[in-house]
Design a binder for these strands. Structure first.
Length: 443
RNA sequence: CGGAGUGUAGCGCAGCCUGGUAGCGCACCUGCUUCGGGAGCAGGGGGCCGCAGGUUCAAAUCCUGCCACUCCGACCA
């Protein structure tokens, strides 16, 4: 992609409404544009990052056996009256009337709708377990949206819903999502810790929330240092086997957010040298809520003995748009964003230091073409600007690699290559660049 | 929803107290010179001063009401 033909509105100064670092950097690097409190347009660079996050989430959901569907953003109120949540949900729910005076709402979540789909088509225990998910925009009319996309009113969420014939099956489904979540966040370059959580308005008895560690996170986190060393299950994990041994280490060490933190227990259970107090951002939560929705919504299947029984459900959310902010909170420096390879909007930023110089133009243009042909996404800065401005822009938008082509090096047939995260530079021959990048690019 | 604050060009701000032709920096356009870490000079375009009402010969400025946005608290992917 040629920068001269792209749409990348960089801001040199920070808009004053942005208080936290991810919000500032998202506005400055041209990822988002605020349209109203907690409501954002996604500009090209932000859109690409979110698409990468979505892709990883999707791959891990699929791997864990969940099946993708897509439900609408607008829902009829009747379903919510049936579950009893139409009145419970309160002002957070955006209520809309259509032209016929029918009560509609912009979905804040989809338990009711997915249950409706399920009960229409599934009536036998033999079709279970089933886990349906979608990645769709939600709207929750938060009293106080803030922190940019970290707490917007409109946000993109992956929500999965599991259906099982009994509690034992529901726990297996829960465990599959537990492992999938560990893998998902790890692939995005994040350290995420699962923590025992309150179930809140979704209800149920078992729940964990996943906190991404970041110095600038909004919740205080207390945990045992050992949990930070645990190895995340590999992509060969067998989701059909008993996953409890994989999960047990993660749930056995002390880990709590500040609102449920027990100082005495922490002091007693965790040796002084391993007591970690840090901060985190909630990016996912999983629930096992049993029959909370299946009873009022009459969702049953026939068991092996021919007797109808209510299904046991769970729901599993990941804040996709929030993750964009969370990743930046966890990975940035004074100069700007430092994208993990797997979610970066482009793999390579290619800088032409002297636009108009035939030798430099030819070398940079050639690199752009061969990188693109090799399937390596590249943003080619072909603007006639000073070097300082180009470097500042590239550092700000945080692409993993910078390839710098200038007249000095080109005389020797050499370019410079810089790793954004470490600042490490090396000088390579033109031909060597391709091999170097091809080898390093594995997400 | 309680408390605090801010609305003036795309972004950052001054002007308001003490009413009198709407300004500065960045960004943008034109030209020339520059060019390996945010260039210099010259010229130029862009504003219902958040909205409505009032006071006044005259309102960005004073008064009243409303709206929007931000921050702190209680709630949340």
């Amino acid at each position: 992609m040629h920068l001269s033909r792209y749409f990348l509105p960089i801001l040199r100064e920070t808009p004053k409404e942005a208080e936290i670092v991810s919000h500032r950097l998202m506005l400055r690097a041209g990822l988002i544009r605020q349209q109203a409190a907690g409501i954002y347009s996604w500009l090209p660079l932000g859109k690409r990052v979110m698409a990468n996050i979505e892709r990883i989430v999707r791959e891990e959901q699929d791997r864990a056996g969940a099946i993708e569907i897509l439900m609408p953003t607008i829902q009829p109120a009747d379903l919510w009256r049936e579950s009893g949540r139409y009145d419970d949900y309160g002002k957070e729910m955006l209520r809309i009337g259509d032209r016929h005076g029918r009560d509609m709402l912009f979905g804040p979540t989809n338990e009711e709708m997915v249950t409706d789909i399920f009960r229409t088509y599934v009536s036998s225990y033999r079709a279970l377990p089933l886990n349906l998910y979608h990645i769709q925009w939600k709207f929750r009319d938060e009293v106080r949206p803030r922190f940019g996309v970290m707490r917007g009113r409109e946000f993109l969420m992956k929500d999965a819903y599991s259906f099982d014939v009994d509690d034992e099956g529901a726990r297996r489904s829960y465990n599959r999502m537990f492992v999938a979540y560990l893998r998902t966040f790890s692939r995005m370059g994040l350290t995420a810790i699962p923590m025992r959580a309150e179930t809140g308005p979704i209800g149920g008895q078992l729940s964990h929330e996943f906190l991404v560690l970041a110095e600038t996170g909004e919740s205080g986190v207390y945990c045992d240092a050992n949990i930070l060393q645990l190895k995340v299950p590999g992509e060969d994990v067998d989701y059909d086997r008993d996953l409890r041994p994989l999960i047990e280490p993660w749930t056995s060490y002390y880990a709590a957010t500040e609102d449920v933190h027990e100082v005495e227990r922490f002091e007693r259970e965790v040796p002084a040298g391993r007591q970690v107090a840090t901060r985190g951002i909630e990016v996912g939560q999983i629930f096992n809520f049993g029959t909370k929705y299946s009873l009022p919504m009459k969702t049953t299947v026939l068991g092996p003995n021919g007797v109808e029984r209510p299904i046991h459900g769970g729901s599993y959310g990941i804040g996709v748009s929030r993750l964009v902010g969370a990743i930046i909170e966890a990975s940035h420096d004074d100069a700007g964003i430092v994208w993990p390879d797997s979610v970066a909007p482009f793999a390579v930023g290619l800088i032409n230091l002297k636009v108009g110089d035939p030798a430099v133009d030819a070398a940079a243009g050639g690199l752009h073409d061969s990188l693109t042909k090799a399937g390596i996404s590249v943003l080619y800065d072909d603007l006639d600007q000073r070097a300082g401005a180009k470097f500042a822009t590239m550092d700000l938008i945080g692409l993993p690699w910078q390839v710098i082509v200038g007249p000095r090096g080109i005389e020797q047939g050499e370019v410079e290559i810089k790793r954004r995260a470490t600042g490490a530079r090396e000088t390579l021959g033109l031909d060597a660049v391709m091999n170097r990048l091809a080898g390093e690019r594995k997400p």
